[in-house]
Lab assay of single mutants.
Amino acid sequence: IDAAQIVDEALEQGITLFVVNNRLQYETSRDSIPTELLNKWKQHKQELIDFLNQLD
């Protein structure tokens, strides 16, 4: 699994991931984030931050 897949998966569930001051953040209108997704974010945090920083 790679960062792009995780970002896409989040988007499919209505969650936008982004980076502020090198910290992973998210925006969503959902009430809660699925635990499975949160765990993936934690496991791949640095990859996600690097990936999202490249997009900007």
Rank of each mutant, 00 (worst) to 15 (best):
residue 47 E to K: 08
residue 15 I to P: 00
residue 14 G to D: 04
residue 51 F to W: 08
residue 23 R to I: 15
residue 12 E to K: 15
residue 32 S to Q: 12
residue 26 Y to D: 00
residue 47 E to P: 06
residue 35 T to Q: 15
residue 19 V to C: 05
residue 41 W to E: 00
residue 12 E to N: 12
residue 43 Q to D: 12
residue 9 E to N: 05
residue 2 D to Y: 12
residue 8 D to I: 14
residue 24 L to N: 00
residue 42 K to L: 14
residue 55 L to D: 07
residue 46 Q to W: 12
residue 56 D to C: 09
residue 37 L to M: 09
residue 40 K to C: 08
residue 32 S to D: 10
residue 14 G to H: 05
residue 48 L to Y: 01
residue 52 L to V: 02
residue 22 N to R: 04
residue 54 Q to N: 13
residue 43 Q to I: 12
residue 42 K to A: 14
residue 45 K to A: 15
residue 13 Q to Y: 14
residue 8 D to T: 15
residue 27 E to H: 14
residue 10 A to Y: 03
residue 49 I to C: 04
residue 21 N to D: 14
residue 5 Q to I: 06
residue 41 W to P: 00
residue 52 L to N: 00
residue 16 T to L: 13
residue 5 Q to Y: 08
residue 56 D to L: 10
residue 12 E to P: 00
residue 52 L to E: 00
residue 23 R to H: 14
residue 8 D to C: 10
residue 27 E to F: 13
residue 7 V to H: 04
residue 56 D to E: 12
residue 37 L to G: 01
residue 11 L to M: 11
residue 54 Q to A: 14
residue 30 R to T: 06
residue 9 E to W: 04
residue 34 P to W: 02
residue 11 L to S: 09
residue 18 F to H: 11
residue 35 T to Y: 10
residue 45 K to E: 15
residue 22 N to T: 04
residue 25 Q to P: 00
residue 26 Y to A: 05
residue 39 N to W: 10
residue 45 K to I: 14
residue 40 K to Y: 08
residue 38 L to Q: 06
residue 32 S to K: 08
residue 48 L to V: 06
residue 23 R to C: 14
residue 18 F to E: 05
residue 50 D to V: 08
residue 19 V to K: 01
residue 47 E to C: 07
residue 23 R to E: 15
residue 9 E to R: 03
residue 1 I to L: 11
residue 36 E to G: 08
residue 2 D to C: 12
residue 50 D to L: 11
residue 30 R to M: 07
residue 20 V to P: 01
residue 22 N to D: 11
residue 55 L to V: 12
residue 40 K to M: 10
residue 4 A to V: 05
residue 53 N to T: 14
residue 44 H to C: 05
residue 52 L to I: 08
residue 43 Q to G: 05
residue 6 I to A: 04
residue 33 I to P: 06
residue 10 A to L: 04
residue 20 V to N: 09
residue 5 Q to M: 12
residue 43 Q to Y: 08
residue 2 D to I: 14
residue 14 G to P: 00
residue 5 Q to K: 13
residue 7 V to F: 09
residue 22 N to L: 05
residue 35 T to P: 13
residue 33 I to Y: 03
residue 22 N to Q: 06
residue 12 E to D: 10
residue 8 D to K: 15
residue 30 R to H: 09
residue 32 S to R: 09
residue 25 Q to E: 13
residue 38 L to H: 05
residue 36 E to I: 09
residue 9 E to G: 03
residue 53 N to V: 10
residue 44 H to P: 00
residue 31 D to R: 01
residue 8 D to N: 15
residue 33 I to L: 06
residue 19 V to T: 07
residue 22 N to F: 05
residue 11 L to K: 15
residue 44 H to W: 12
residue 14 G to E: 04
residue 52 L to P: 00
residue 55 L to G: 11
residue 47 E to D: 09
residue 16 T to A: 06
residue 11 L to I: 08
residue 33 I to N: 01
residue 54 Q to H: 12
residue 42 K to S: 14
residue 41 W to S: 01
residue 1 I to T: 10
residue 46 Q to N: 09
residue 19 V to Y: 04
residue 32 S to H: 12
residue 26 Y to I: 07
residue 30 R to E: 06
residue 46 Q to F: 08
residue 42 K to T: 12
residue 6 I to N: 00
residue 34 P to L: 02
residue 18 F to L: 14
residue 40 K to T: 09
residue 24 L to I: 07
residue 14 G to V: 02
residue 5 Q to V: 10
residue 20 V to M: 10
residue 12 E to F: 08
residue 10 A to E: 01
residue 31 D to Y: 05
residue 43 Q to W: 07
residue 48 L to R: 00
residue 54 Q to F: 09
residue 27 E to Q: 13
residue 4 A to K: 15
residue 49 I to N: 01
residue 30 R to P: 03
residue 31 D to E: 13
residue 35 T to K: 13
residue 40 K to H: 06
residue 24 L to P: 01
residue 32 S to V: 13
residue 30 R to S: 08
residue 21 N to M: 06
residue 13 Q to S: 07
residue 21 N to K: 06
residue 45 K to M: 15
residue 27 E to M: 14
residue 46 Q to H: 08
residue 28 T to R: 03
residue 1 I to R: 07
residue 29 S to H: 09
residue 36 E to A: 11
residue 54 Q to T: 12
residue 34 P to I: 03
residue 36 E to C: 05
residue 40 K to E: 04
residue 44 H to L: 06
residue 8 D to A: 15
residue 19 V to Q: 02
residue 41 W to N: 00
residue 2 D to A: 09
residue 7 V to G: 01
residue 20 V to D: 09
residue 35 T to L: 15
residue 19 V to P: 02
residue 31 D to S: 07
residue 11 L to P: 02
residue 52 L to K: 00
residue 8 D to F: 15
residue 13 Q to V: 08
residue 25 Q to V: 14
residue 5 Q to C: 05
residue 12 E to Q: 14
residue 34 P to T: 05
residue 18 F to S: 12
residue 43 Q to L: 13
residue 47 E to F: 07
residue 53 N to P: 03
residue 1 I to C: 09
residue 14 G to K: 04
residue 52 L to Y: 02
residue 5 Q to L: 11
residue 11 L to A: 12
residue 28 T to V: 05
residue 17 L to Q: 00
residue 14 G to M: 04
residue 47 E to M: 12
residue 27 E to A: 14
residue 37 L to E: 03
residue 4 A to H: 08
residue 20 V to E: 12
residue 49 I to G: 01
residue 50 D to Q: 10
residue 1 I to P: 09
residue 45 K to G: 10
residue 55 L to W: 07
residue 3 A to E: 03
residue 2 D to P: 09
residue 13 Q to I: 07
residue 1 I to M: 13
residue 35 T to F: 12
residue 2 D to E: 10
residue 52 L to D: 00
residue 36 E to N: 09
residue 45 K to P: 03
residue 41 W to L: 13
residue 44 H to M: 07
residue 18 F to P: 01
residue 6 I to W: 07
residue 54 Q to G: 14
residue 38 L to F: 08
residue 29 S to L: 11
residue 32 S to F: 13
residue 21 N to E: 10
residue 52 L to R: 00
residue 43 Q to A: 13
residue 7 V to R: 04
residue 48 L to F: 01
residue 41 W to D: 00
residue 50 D to T: 10
residue 32 S to M: 08
residue 23 R to T: 15
residue 17 L to Y: 01
residue 46 Q to G: 06
residue 51 F to R: 02
residue 37 L to H: 02
residue 10 A to M: 03
residue 10 A to T: 04
residue 42 K to C: 13
residue 10 A to N: 01
residue 9 E to D: 06
residue 41 W to H: 02
residue 24 L to F: 04
residue 8 D to E: 14
residue 25 Q to T: 09
residue 27 E to K: 15
residue 3 A to C: 09
residue 52 L to C: 02
residue 28 T to H: 06
residue 46 Q to V: 08
residue 34 P to M: 03
residue 54 Q to K: 14
